[in-house]
Simulated assay, not measured.
Amino acid sequence: MSLQESTFRGFANPVDPSPAELRAWAYQPDSVPLESMPQDWDLLVSGDQLITTLFDLALDPSCPARRFALHCLYIYAGDGIRTRFRAHSKRRLSKLLKQAEQHGDELMASWAHNCRVLMTDPERFDYHEWCEGGLVRQARRLG
């Protein structure tokens, strides 16, 4: 039985979920609605520990929480780029961008494109777009 088929019973610690818990929740997001999560949960989970899991979820078009995972990818990338990669590794982000370009669909390709645009001009960082979901709600490629 895969995690997608198992019943998600909640987080042991929602502020610090494990990759397995996050993956199980992502395939049954109604089991613990986002509204019931701690404030700024998206910011809390968008770190190095869960980025690979979030990336895998964002790559999966059948994942019910795909848009949430993509939103977290924008937070992670924006945070890394705007801090000149003090917050997150440029190498790790570059690997994710390459994977998104090679294996992702249009949503993931747009994320990779937008990250590359921001990398060339970090002054274009806009908190609303990168951290509050603007680029996910109105999916588009930055010019």
Rank of each mutant, 00 (worst) to 15 (best):
2 S>T: 13
3 L>Q: 07
3 L>T: 02
3 L>D: 03
5 E>N: 14
5 E>C: 12
7 T>K: 15
13 N>T: 08
14 P>K: 07
15 V>A: 12
15 V>S: 07
17 P>M: 01
19 P>I: 05
19 P>N: 07
19 P>W: 06
23 R>L: 11
25 W>K: 00
25 W>Q: 01
27 Y>N: 02
27 Y>E: 02
30 D>W: 10
30 D>P: 04
31 S>R: 15
31 S>M: 10
33 P>K: 03
36 S>V: 01
38 P>Y: 02
39 Q>T: 12
40 D>R: 13
40 D>E: 14
41 W>V: 00
44 L>T: 05
44 L>P: 00
47 G>H: 04
52 T>A: 14
55 F>W: 08
58 A>Y: 05
63 C>F: 06
68 F>E: 01
69 A>Y: 04
70 L>A: 07
74 Y>Q: 09
74 Y>F: 14
75 I>W: 05
76 Y>K: 09
79 D>Y: 08
81 I>W: 03
84 R>G: 13
84 R>N: 15
85 F>K: 05
85 F>L: 07
87 A>S: 13
90 K>Y: 14
91 R>I: 13
91 R>G: 10
92 R>D: 09
93 L>M: 09
95 K>F: 10
96 L>S: 02
98 K>L: 14
99 Q>K: 14
104 G>M: 06
109 A>G: 11
113 H>E: 08
114 N>K: 06
116 R>K: 15
118 L>H: 05
122 P>Q: 10
125 F>D: 06
125 F>A: 05
125 F>T: 06
126 D>I: 12
127 Y>N: 14
128 H>G: 13
130 W>I: 07
132 E>T: 09
134 G>V: 03
135 L>C: 04
135 L>W: 03
136 V>A: 07
138 Q>H: 15
